[in-house]
């Protein structure tokens, strides 16, 4: 089991008072499995993804990634999990503007040691980024930037890939192409994938689909 969320509860304080976002949410994800998480805006999809990505801690419940319980770890421990076991692809790409494509792709993997160059070249080639390696993010289209973000995520060989609206900022054609390449690579590397999306088309391509309604999974 790559991801095990058990009885997760999460709420936020706002000016209007306490707002419950996740209410007794549990789910599991195995290696090579793909899952789409859907729901209305504000339904808690991103919060759940962030908890799964060790970016946030739940108020209650437990989070296990690759058998490691996150609530018992400090910031440095959770950072190590994010570095080694998880990779996240964001809607807004989150590329580092001052690094070129090659350095962006290398960055996360290099935090844990030397990068496997053969693997890197294979991923770069399958995402059709070979000619873009020296360019800076500002010179790339949205689709190209998202492919760089996916390459950066997969080069680290994560157990779990989390994607937050990965095609939300792309046109239909680019979205299809990016999704196809991501699924192919995930299948090849036996990585577990959880995608947060509004898109029915994206969700339909996953093994499982779950909906978050009122903070509960349906």
């Amino acid at each position: 089991m790559v991801l095990n969320l058990n009885s997760i509860r999460k709420s936020y304080r706002t000016n209007e008072g306490k707002v419950s976002v996740l209410n007794d949410v549990s789910l599991t994800l195995f290696a090579g499995e793909t899952l789409a998480l859907r729901g209305e805006s504000g339904s808690g999809k991103s919060t759940l993804l962030h908890i799964a990505g060790a970016l946030e801690l739940p108020d209650e419940g437990s989070v296990e990634i690759g058998g490691k319980e996150l609530s018992k770890m400090d910031d440095t421990g959770r950072a190590a999990v994010r570095r080694k076991d998880i990779a996240i692809v964001f809607q807004h790409f989150n590329l580092i503007p001052s690094l070129n494509v090659a350095a962006n792709i290398n960055f996360q993997a290099s935090l844990s040691g030397p990068v496997d160059k053969i693997k890197l070249e294979k991923i770069v080639s399958s995402l059709r980024l070979t000619d873009q390696m020296e360019k800076y993010p500002e010179a790339l289209s949205g689709g190209q930037q998202q492919r760089v973000a996916i390459a950066r995520a997969l080069v680290t060989e994560p157990k779990l890939l989390l994607a937050d609206e990965p095609t939300g900022n792309l046109d239909e054609q680019s979205a299809e192409s990016v999704l196809e390449q991501m699924l192919t690579l995930v299948a090849e590397t036996n990585t577990a994938l959880m995608v947060v999306t509004h898109s029915r088309n994206v969700a339909a391509r996953m093994d499982k689909q779950l909906r978050l309604i009122g903070g509960r999974l349906k």
Binding site: A79, V81, Q108
Partner: peptide, 12 residues
């Protein structure tokens, strides 16, 4: 940039 680095596993 720093947020991205943090999300990719760089500790505070």
């Amino acid at each position: 940039m720093m947020r991205s680095m943090r999300s990719m596993g760089v500790s505070i």
